[in-house]
Design a protein around this nucleic acid. Sequence first.
RNA 1: CGGGGAGUGGCGCAGUCUGGUAGCGCACCCGGCUGGGGGCCGGGCGGUCGCAGGUUCAAAUCCUGUCUCCCCGACCA
Length: 510
Amino acid sequence: MRAGGPAAPVPDRLARPGVVPDRPGTRASRGRPRHRPYHRRVPKPPVLTPQATDFPKWYQDVVAKAELADNGPVRGTMVIRPWAYGLWEQLQGEINRRIKAAGAQNAYFPLLIPASYLQKEAEHVEGFAPELAIVTQGGGKELEEPAVIRPTSETIINSSFSKWINSYKDLPLRINNWSNVVRWELRPRLFLRTTEFLWQEGHTAHATADEARAYALQILEDVYRSVMVDVMGIPVIPGLKTRKETFAGAIRSWTCEGMMGDGKALQMGTSHELAQNFAKAFDIRFQDQNGEMQHPWQTSWGVSTRLLGAAIMVHGDDHGMRISPRAAPTQVVVMQLAEDDAVAAAARATVQELLGRGVRVELDDRVDRGFGRRATDWELKGAPIRIELGKRDIDKGEATIADRVDRSKTSVPLTELVARTVEVLDGQHQRLYDEALARRTERTVDVETVEDALAAAGNGFARIPWATLGLEGEETLAKQGVTVRCLVGADGSLSDPDEPGVLAVVARAY
RNA sequence: CGGGGAGUGGCGCAGUCUGGUAGCGCACCCGGCUGGGGGCCGGGCGGUCGCAGGUUCAAAUCCUGUCUCCCCGACCA
């Protein structure tokens, strides 16, 4: 940086390779089509591979320019800014509703956990010990027993479960906790792996192993996959984690894996079968119908603010974020373009009408800012639709609908404005999903050898028979930075590794 | 821990090699013009140069030490 004299001018656009900055510039305004792309055609960006250094750069640019998050003062911590937090709140709402529909209740457990609790489950402590933050002082005095800042809450929640569960009539017990947790990760990345992150963690206890397993899968399907697919518009692969990737203390971990814009995988949510491991460690027992004492069978499951990272990396384009209207904190931004009473009145009326239709709408009347700045800001944030209302429009009895998904603009009569807006809004989710699915399909290949899997993982996902890969193959790949993301049945179903025909999905991952 | 890079107004940087009045862009404030894609003109506010010590008449700049942050990899929601 300092060696070569003045740095080359960097275009103030999001830096993505091969993209000519598309300064809108002059454009003939006469005889323009009613539906038009509003950017000069630019060459498609080259296919980004996981090895390319540009995607992480692009990601960081989006996070900064769309004002999603800042680094906190302590390494790895994150300030979540309003737009990103608004998105999180939307996701929380959708997740919360589904969790409750699945029969779980919300409760809250403490941030601080006695250090000894972590010790009680051998694999669990081994898995988390390296990344614990530990409080050794309180009130100016050395604590008799250090307190761990929760990295996850299995231990403290199960210590309560042991008090709450006595009879088979107390089962199933299904508790969810919205919280923040701290894991001292080696390399933090905003949203994807921060030292502190927000999440929900569900913890349940059941009378039988089958019931516990069914519930873990129910959460995976009805809560996680549903929110990712139906709300965020992100196709995911539900599957089983390999032994190597299983949660510390669980016997099976299920995952929803998503493919990011550069072909890398991201684990977007997990659901674990804990068997009786924690029940034994915390002496949770119930008396069954026959009067026998038994340990319950348990699950735990969680999704975190990492989902926001996925939202950015799956749908983002050269102009910033794109968000499904089902998840967007604001679905429609009504832009008042001129300091003019008629325009202002029309803008306010449009906002009111949209509110009446149940649309999350925001008025942008910052007429003291240049139009370009305002439009670009909303585009970076990925607001699904902008309605542009200026004097020209009003005089003609029209308004402009700007669609963030394909960056098209359409002039519509004011009388049809709200109906057309809702129509466009309704179609956006599917278009985003289809785009992401098409990319994943294009970048997923079936292979038969470890070498081919390794090569293919440079571009996206590779599927290889688990019987062919095996534990050895998994190790070989891992040394090259390629991991088995999950195991799926040949027909895409959830399967056990022992079943014939099971496929391993391998990829590089975040 | 290994490999790179950086600490200079709020943000991004130049200045360091060759010591000598701390600069630029953006942002911000004021006034005006503009307003359909990151606007224009004019006027302003704002800096103990990461920290500590040393050399020197004089240190952002040279020397020694130290701290922190960022990026790439190993760990992981």
